[in-house]
Design a protein around this nucleic acid. Structure first.
Lengths: 132, 132
DNA sequence: CCATTACAGACTTTATGAGTCCATAATAAC
DNA sequence: GTTATTATGGACTCATAAAGTCTGTAATGG
């Protein structure tokens, strides 16, 4: 079980937006260059982030992406969910009547992880990121 | 990101072994019937559990599988690791010098989840499972 | 010896991740 | 208004892994 590389890229892109956070929006071209990934591919993830309401996009010259919310309000979980979706890690495939005790345990475990990721904001890492 | 169905089967099989825990070993035939999965497929997962040291196998007539350790010593995490492997959820694909702060966060989150799964033993569920 | 069981490897099928390519739409600058 | 610049969308390819089947081999109890 692994998070997709798309999530990796999205997290880095968001971190860049927060760290470099200028008034000017930053385009996918620059982002892609920084991350070492193709523009067209990265743009797909950026669009997901837009649809999730995390960032704003503007077409045209001097367009690009900028944060929509305050940076302190953007958590790791927000970004991960925007890319990976919100489906849970585990779904019991057996058809025992309704509630599967095993599934319950795994979902509780997942909740532990998600709670951690929700409390962790990217803004906390912005300092570290300066100069990359 | 999702756990494989194989993990689902393995967890249920182990729960059955714990709950039905007889002195007689139980064969893959019975297990497969209970879980509604093919014998040959399930046997692959059982073999992994054997190699992970969680259960013991015996060929021949009246053979089958039985627990190797005390049932209180078998955690959810043990079983999951036996099937899924122990690789972590996240690996940064960018080549910034060594430590990726993003990766650190996600790995910490994963550790939260794994800690929960390690403290959770299948024996705790054995009661619920009686009569399935 | 024979039936029963686990183990191993080769194979198929299907789904998903990862990525490319190209066309379209919107906007700012001139 | 035209043009350059940007985002968005869909269709497409390719590789890898999950999910499962089939068949044969080996070990053990009766």
């Amino acid at each position: 079980m692994k998070y997709s590389q798309a999530t990796d890229y999205a997290l880095h892109a968001m971190l860049y937006l927060v760290a470099a956070a200028p008034d000017k929006p930053v385009g996918v071209q620059l982002l892609a260059e920084k991350l070492g990934v193709s523009q067209t591919y990265l743009s797909k993830m950026m669009t997901k982030l837009v649809k999730a309401g995390l960032i704003q996009s503007a077409p045209g010259a001097n367009g690009g992406y900028r944060l929509r919310r305050k940076q302190e309000d953007i958590s790791f979980l927000d970004i991960i969910h925007a890319i990976e979706g919100t489906a849970s890690f585990f779904e019991c495939s057996l058809n025992h009547d309704n509630e599967c005790v095993i599934q319950k345990v795994v979902l509780d475990a997942e909740r532990q992880m998600e709670q951690y990721l929700q409390n962790k904001k990217i803004s906390e890492l912005a300092e570290h990121f300066k100069g990359r």
